[in-house]
């Protein structure tokens, strides 16, 4: 969208004004995330510039061996365990359901789809309060399993959506071809269907991972100190006394977000390329 050679001065002026406006909006989007990262390396506990030097002090508070560090480290282990288990469960259940949803039409399919998607639409506090009330009666409160089940629920819609989207472009004649050539259904699934839908499955599971990794509200209700995850630990810190340790933890979360984002982008572009969708 370069400015056309025949553009009038007004059009030219608008063209550049528009670009500046967009620049400012992008600045608004990115600035807060970039500005706080260096503050985690400030040797003094102030949240402003200019910084008074450079230190790993606040990262030391997370990775050291003081009682607080041990809480941080335990919360990291919890976060990783919960996110991985929830992702695996959500990926398996979600992929199977997506395969079923695209395989045939049956009465009530839109309603079933709406139920499978609803965990992303129902307000998170309502979900958390409902789970807290119900899980308390079956002894799942203050257990990692309870949190894993809850996070699986929150992540599963993403898997269903992305895998269904991938399957929409899927040619079912390939499955029939496989069957005609003598492969049993399991072999057809492993050798034909799975390789084609893998990008969708992987991106769905990355979404599910992110949903669990960032989740705080359900953890607020279901976890006691033993099960605290990193966001839950940050929450206590923010509420009590905002210390640069929180920013150090936030920076690590940002790095993981960046990794997730680039993986997703790489997958998306790869699948676009493979389907020949990328215009020059």
């Amino acid at each position: 969208m370069a400015v056309a050679p025949y553009a009038t001065p007004v059009e030219k002026a608008w063209y550049y004004t528009f670009r500046v406006i967009c620049g400012l909006i992008f600045f608004f989007l990115i600035m807060p995330i970039l500005v706080i990262i260096p503050l985690g390396f400030n040797p003094v506990p102030f949240f402003t510039y200019p910084m008074e030097g450079f230190s790993w002090r606040w990262y030391g508070e997370i990775f050291g061996d003081s009682p607080i560090s041990i809480l941080w480290q335990r919360s990291m282990v919890n976060s990783v365990v919960v996110a991985i288990c929830a992702t695996l469960l959500a990926t398996i259940l979600g992929t199977l359901a997506a395969l079923g949803l695209t395989r045939a039409d049956f009465p009530g399919k839109p309603a079933v789809m709406a139920i499978l998607i609803s965990p992303i639409m129902v307000p998170i506090v309502v979900i958390a309060v409902g789970m807290f009330y119900f899980y308390a009666q079956v002894g799942l409160v203050s257990t990692l399993s309870g949190i894993i089940l809850a996070h699986t629920t929150l992540g599963v819609p993403f898997v269903v959506i992305t895998v269904s989207a991938t399957l929409q472009g899927f040619d079912h004649n390939l499955v029939r071809a496989g069957a005609i050539l003598g492969a049993n259904p399991v072999r057809v699934f492993r050798k034909v269907t799975l390789p084609i839908i893998t990008p969708g499955v992987v991106s769905g599971s990355l979404f599910a991972f992110a949903a669990s990794w960032d989740e705080i509200v359900v953890v607020l209700f279901l976890a006691s100190t033993e099960q605290h995850t990193v966001p839950r630990r940050m929450w206590s810190g923010i509420r009590e006394l905002l210390s640069p340790t929180i920013i150090a933890a936030a920076t690590m979360l940002i790095i993981i977000s960046i990794l997730l984002m680039f993986t997703m982008e790489w997958l998306r572009r790869r699948s676009e390329r493979m389907r020949g969708l990328t215009p020059s």
Binding site: I33, I36, I258
Partner: peptide, 20 residues
Amino acid sequence: LLLLPFWTSLLVRTTAWLVL
């Protein structure tokens, strides 16, 4: 530039604004 904030944890972004 749009996806970075999208993928960044809600709590991290809220903290960032609190600090700013």
